[in-house]
Design a protein around this nucleic acid. Structure first.
Length: 202
DNA sequence: ATGGTCAACGTGCCGG
DNA sequence: CCGGCACGTTGACCAT
């Protein structure tokens, strides 16, 4: 799947980026051990394997030469980022042809395009999760407010009950809604028919 | 110093 | 079995 040139030797294993320690010994073949874009030269200086491909922005020109043995992180140029972004707006996943085409247009490797889309999807999901969380929070607050309001209303109704006459609401010509003063249950009274207990309130 | 961002990675899962 | 993806992680870089 990956180019042979991408399979950099294990020389740099454990150094710098991507030094993830596998939990199990299993490792997919043809996956580069170190970054696609960088390898360490014998003196430990960082060189960019994409130096002929990746345009550097003004700000990262200075990134290309440091001699402290630390590899530099690849930063996509603004043009590359915006093109990837535009492409992502059209489709959040790419088929192999689209991936290759985009990689060619951007002078990137297909793996880099693939990784960018994976990370982009993850960012989108994270953002959406945050939006959902906020929405649920708001809904929760609304329900809480409604609950408070109903409790208050109930208290007011109970206060009415304590008065001289029991709670009694005329529903229609033949039916009334009454709260039993002893058991505090709402009862629908139908003229000449059976009574229906609506809801226990205690 | 420290926390956020992001390219790149390893791993596990799933569908073809 | 293989490729693609989600997920969690790493480490360089950057802003504060």
């Amino acid at each position: 799947m990956e180019d042979a040139e991408e399979c950099i030797t294990g020389l740099c294993l454990g150094l710098g980026m991507g030094g993830y320690v596998p939990k199990k010994g299993k490792q997919k073949e043809n996956r580069p051990v170190v970054d696609l874009a960088f390898e360490l030269c014998p003196k430990g200086e960082a060189i960019n394997l994409n130096h002929d491909k990746v345009e550097s922005t003004d700000s990262d020109n200075s990134n290309n030469n440091n001699n402290n043995g630390c590899r530099k992180k690849l930063r996509l140029s603004k043009d590359q980022s915006s093109m990837l972004e535009n492409s992502f707006k059209l489709h959040s996943t790419l088929n192999p042809v689209q991936k290759q085409t985009l990689a060619d247009q951007l002078n990137l490797k297909t793996r880099q395009v693939e990784v960018w889309f994976q990370n982009r999807r993850a960012r989108t999901k994270l953002k959406q999760t945050e939006v959902d969380r906020e929405w649920l929070k708001k809904q929760c607050q609304n329900l809480s407010d409604e609950n408070k309001r109903l409790k208050k209303e109930l208290q007011e109704l109970r206060a009415l009950k304590v008065g001289p006459s029991p709670l009694c609401i005329q529903l229609s010509k033949t039916a009334t809604l009454t709260m039993c003063s002893s058991c505090e249950k709402l009862v629908k009274l139908n003229e000449g028919k059976n009574n229906i207990e609506l809801k226990g309130t205690n």
